Amino acid sequence: MGRKFEVESDRYEFNQSHNHLIKDLAQKMRFVSYFLIALGVLLIIGGIVSVRSGLISGIINGVLQILIGFWTTKAASSFNLIADTQGNDIENLMIALEQLRKLYTLQYWLILIALIFIAIAIITGLILGAVNVTP
Rank of each mutant, 00 (worst) to 15 (best):
S53Q: 13
F35L: 15
N61R: 01
I37V: 15
G54K: 00
V49G: 01
A119S: 12
K102E: 06
Q16E: 15
L36M: 14
G125T: 08
F31H: 10
I56Q: 12
L115I: 07
L43Q: 05
P135D: 10
T105W: 01
D10H: 13
K102Q: 09
T134D: 08
Q65W: 08
K4V: 14
I45P: 03
L115P: 03
L110A: 14
L39V: 14
L112Y: 11
I22V: 15
I59M: 07
I82Q: 02
A38M: 09
A114T: 13
S78Y: 01
E8D: 11
G2Y: 04
I90E: 11
I60H: 07
E98Y: 05
I66K: 01
N19F: 02
I90D: 07
G2C: 06
D10L: 10
S33Y: 04
A83G: 05
Q27P: 00
I116M: 09
L97F: 05
D89P: 03
G47I: 06
M1N: 06
A38R: 04
K23Q: 08
G129A: 07
F14R: 00
D10C: 07
G47Y: 02
F31N: 09
V63F: 12
V32L: 15
S9T: 06
V41W: 00
E13R: 14
I56G: 13
V63A: 13
I122C: 09
Y12S: 03
G40V: 02
L112K: 14
T85V: 08
S57P: 02
Q27H: 11
A119P: 01
A96L: 02
G125Y: 05
G125M: 02
L21K: 08
L43A: 06
Q99Y: 11
G87K: 02
I66Y: 00
S53C: 04
F31K: 13
R101F: 03
N15L: 03
L100W: 00
T72E: 02
S78M: 07
R3Y: 05
L100N: 09
N92E: 13
I122E: 11
N80L: 11
N61C: 03
A83P: 02
A96W: 00
L42E: 05
K28I: 06
S53T: 08
Q107F: 05
N61E: 13
E98W: 01
